[in-house]
């Protein structure tokens, strides 16, 4: 099964002719993702690697009614407009890759999407991959391998680092989800874990967290209250991060004394979730917790 994306995912790329959009359209095609069409206003009639480009999402969807998911590379000032265009055209899943989206914009479109029952992943995220089946994102596909470990992460490259460690240890992945590094995201760590709990293919979970916000603390609380159906291990980045400084991601900041790595690690460990100090310890912790 896997979560969010699989072989039935039929993809529209918004912002498909830009620098990032075109190179990732080609990379997704190469991986085997079913990319059906692209959209860039004013570029109708052109194509990227054989993928036809349309002026509007409406045109693309009427030509290709099988489209069910969209990935967005439209720059921050126009990003919200692109998200609404996708939301109003019947998409079931929207992956918003774009960085630096204003938080008042995401606050509104994320709530609009939730009211409509549409899943948004991101913004400011690497996307979603179910290795071997579908890559709806910008991650390097060769690092991932098919298997039974579900990954949820707030970071991009750190996800690749840990996926690589897992792959080398022979632990393939069912799905890896980068929820995004912004303060407001469409689906957060806790919600992705809930999706993984219902996925028979996923046998163990890795939560990659970082400083800022309280997603990891809320996950810990949920585990204390209702438990978690699958073995779960974690890695938290930013143990050395000073308070009040934004560490690259808009959401990665220790503010008002909360959101520190120490607090998150304490909360997770108190809920019985082992937290690795080094990425290389993760495969060992997974094997150990699967035996228990």
């Amino acid at each position: 099964m896997t979560i969010l994306v699989d072989k039935s995912t039929k993809v529209l790329v918004q912002g498909a002719t830009g620098r990032e959009g075109s190179s990732h359209t080609l990379a997704m095609l190469k991986y085997g993702t079913n990319v059906v069409a692209g959209v860039t206003p004013g570029k109708s009639g052109s194509n990227i690697g054989g993928v036809p480009i349309y002026n509007t999402v409406k045109q693309a969807v009427s030509e290709h009614p099988e489209i069910n998911s969209s990935i967005i590379f439209v720059p921050a000032p126009y990003n919200a407009d692109a998200v609404y265009e996708a939301l109003d055209s019947g998409m079931k899943l929207i992956v918003d890759i774009t960085e630096h989206v204003p938080v008042h914009d995401s606050l509104e479109f994320v709530n609009y999407a939730r009211n409509k029952g549409v899943t948004i992943i991101g913004p400011n995220c690497p996307g979603v991959i179910s290795p071997g089946d579908c890559k709806l994102g910008i991650m390097p596909g060769q690092i991932f391998s098919k298997g039974n470990v579900g990954i949820v992460s707030r970071s991009g490259t750190l996800t690749y680092e840990i996926a690589w460690v897992l792959t080398k240890a022979g632990l393939g992945q069912s799905t890896a989800v980068g929820v995004g590094g912004d303060p407001i995201v469409g689906r957060d760590t806790v919600e992705i874990i809930e999706m993984f709990e219902g996925d028979p293919e996923t046998k163990a979970l890795v939560v990659i967290g970082e400083i800022g916000g309280d997603a990891e603390e809320r996950l810990a609380l949920r585990i204390r209250q209702v438990g978690v159906k699958k073995p779960i291990v974690s890695f938290i980045a930013g143990r050395q991060a000073p308070p009040g400084k934004r560490m690259g991601h808009a959401g990665a900041i220790i503010s008002m004394g909360s959101g520190s790595a120490g607090g998150k690690i304490k909360a997770l460990e108190a809920s019985g979730v082992p937290v690795a100090e080094l990425p290389s310890q993760i495969p060992v912790l997974i094997s150990k917790s699967m035996r228990q």
């Binding site: 490259t157 980045a237 690259g248 991601h249 080094l278």
Partner: peptide, 11 residues
């Protein structure tokens, strides 16, 4: 990548 750099510092 922000997460990787934070992790690098920690390691």
């Amino acid at each position: 990548g922000a997460g990787l750099v934070m992790a690098t510092i920690d390691v």
